[in-house]
Nucleic acid binder design. Structure first.
Lengths: 132, 132
DNA sequence: GCTTGCCCTGACACCGGCGGCAATGTTTAG
DNA sequence: CTAAACATTGCCGCCGGTGTCAGGGCAAGC
């Protein structure tokens, strides 16, 4: 399989695949003319990469998952290194959720306050409060 | 007040203040020698900028708040434009919280699954499940 | 032979909020 | 007088995953 086909099948671009290869995530043979020749299995790999990227992983985080697939596992997440990354990411996400929740509170408070002051300054019949 | 003092008092750097000025957020007079001369009131402005940045606003979002302060309001958030930004940001944060929650679920599911498979493959006495 | 469609490498652009350096002028304290 | 501390403008670097262009080579149908 050449790069264009893999790109189409994986729903991404040739540029992107070259980038992954450059960073050691995807592998290929070279044909006599210099064209990359990808193994069928790389499709699975690329899909794993794309899924994890979409979740917010960076390429370094993804390496263990690719290695896990290459080791023959059906899922990229079952190997110890992958599990470690999953744990770390979960912790990161939880921390971020916490901070974001605080930010939400601040925003909500500011908004409520601002609207209250507006009401005091020039009162109307009904005041559209932000939901929640 | 010169730039160094303002930077110290606002807890940031001269570089940063020049950047804000360059982008129209902070104002200054110029002394005969070319040095910037900041009004006392700019301290309040810079602090507002810093607070909002810390919350996750970008400089464009912050503009209305600065304008509001310059208009003489005690809080930067009470003017209509600021309120609009607050609403939009709240919506953005809520949306992000939603997505992040989904991501958290995915991570948690993957982790649980991976650990379950590990248990099946090489059972031990106790299995440390990730919290929550 | 010509066109079309692939493929190759290399390299710049992006985004945003600065950090940091260079080269130079100003003020101030000792 | 001099050194230190401050100020100025201007420009490059960063981060990461791509888009995109430049300037080529290869394959295949007409």
């Amino acid at each position: 399989m050449r790069i264009g086909e893999l790109a189409r099948r994986a729903g991404t671009s040739a540029r992107t695949l070259r980038y992954y290869e450059e960073h050691g995530l995807v592998r290929s043979q070279r044909a006599a003319n210099g064209y990359r020749a990808f193994d069928e299995a790389e499709l699975r790999v690329v899909r794993e990469i794309r899924e994890l990227l979409a979740i917010g992983f960076d390429l370094d985080d993804i390496r263990p998952f690719v290695a896990c697939l290459r080791a023959g596992h059906e899922s990229g997440g079952v190997c110890p290194d992958s599990v470690a990354v999953l744990r770390r990411k979960l912790a990161e996400v939880d921390a971020y959720l916490g901070r974001l929740g605080e930010v939400r509170e601040q925003l909500h408070a500011q908004l409520t306050q601002a609207i209250a002051r507006r009401e005091k300054a020039c009162p109307r019949r009904s005041s559209p409060l932000p939901r929640s």
